[in-house]
């Protein structure tokens, strides 16, 4: 059905047009952005990038580094803590399990806005404002219940006979978890990694609240501060830095598509 394909291509093109146009415009001289709604590039200008990169003090490199450190911390935190909790929910038999499991599922739906005020009070008393701790510690404490649930579902699908056999051979739970279940969980761990990467990289609300010192700014916070501090006419450099901030997301998308699609289809992520 060529009509169907034509329709889909047109819809897709219209949807992605603004993003493509932003990329092209970031490579044009600043004043052309207002005049040229097309996608054809006459010449390649990289001034917007150098200008945007050095517009704030420190330069954009610092923010990229900060975001990278933060993202890595969150990924490690989520992988370790969520897989441990998931193992307990999927494989261990303990008192009040259904009740705790219910609470865990409930926290998936808990909006961050509801907990942010007392959490901020707690972390500011601890002197953690303007560090990455308020952003990473929650991940180390398995508060991204979405991933716990995703991993529970995955572990439930693994054959129980494997851990039973290991048990008979005298393995305790720590070894069964580390040497049998964890290696088999790679797809679920990959899904968690890729979602944590994208969500943390994009997250603005909590980073805006906890990171107020420019030295500690992450990419979204810096980008917003850059946009606020420049006159509206310098779209070129704003677009350039926006493109820079989206490149990692785009790469994660290319590398991890398979896991993203699977993760959403089974548990309904964002």
């Amino acid at each position: 059905m060529p009509a169907k394909h034509l329709g889909l291509v047109v819809i897709g093109f219209i949807m992605l047009y603004p993003v493509l146009w932003m990329i092209v415009s970031s490579l044009r001289p600043g004043d052309e952005i207002f005049r040229n709604p097309g996608l054809i590039l006459d010449s390649l200008q990289t001034e917007n990038y150098t200008e945007g990169w050095n517009a704030l003090n420190p330069s954009f490199g610092t923010y990229l580094l900060n975001s990278t450190i933060l993202v890595l911390g969150c990924i490690i935190g989520n992988l370790v803590s969520c897989s441990m909790a998931a193992y307990a929910f999927a494989r261990l038999n303990f008192s009040g399990k259904r009740w705790w499991f219910g609470i865990m599922l409930g926290t998936i739906m808990l909006p961050v806005h509801v907990i942010i005020v007392p959490q901020y009070v707690l972390f500011s008393q601890a002197g953690w404002v303007n560090t990455f701790l308020p952003l990473i510690v929650p991940k180390i404490l398995a508060t991204d219940a979405f991933f716990v649930f995703l991993m529970v579902q995955f572990i439930r699908g693994l054959p129980r006979e494997l851990d039973e056999a290991a048990r008979i051979d005298g393995c305790g739970h720590p070894r069964i978890f580390a040497q049998i279940v964890l290696p088999l969980m790679k797809p679920a761990l990959a899904t968690t990694t890729i979602f944590t990467f994208i969500w943390t990289w994009n997250d603005f609300f909590t980073q805006l609240i906890y990171l107020t010192d420019p030295e500690m700014y992450t990419v979204p916070v810096a980008l917003r501060s850059f946009v606020d501090s420049t006159v509206a006419t310098s779209w070129g450099s704003q677009f350039a830095m926006s493109v820079v901030s989206l490149v990692p997301i785009f790469l994660a998308f290319l590398i991890g598509q398979r896991y993203l699609v699977k993760g959403i289809a089974t548990t309904g992520g964002k």
């Binding site: 993003v19 994009n202 917003r224 704003q238």
Partner: peptide
């Protein structure tokens, strides 16, 4: 949900 798209 990114700041970049909001800028766009």
């Amino acid at each position: 949900s990114s700041v970049a798209i909001a800028v766009l």
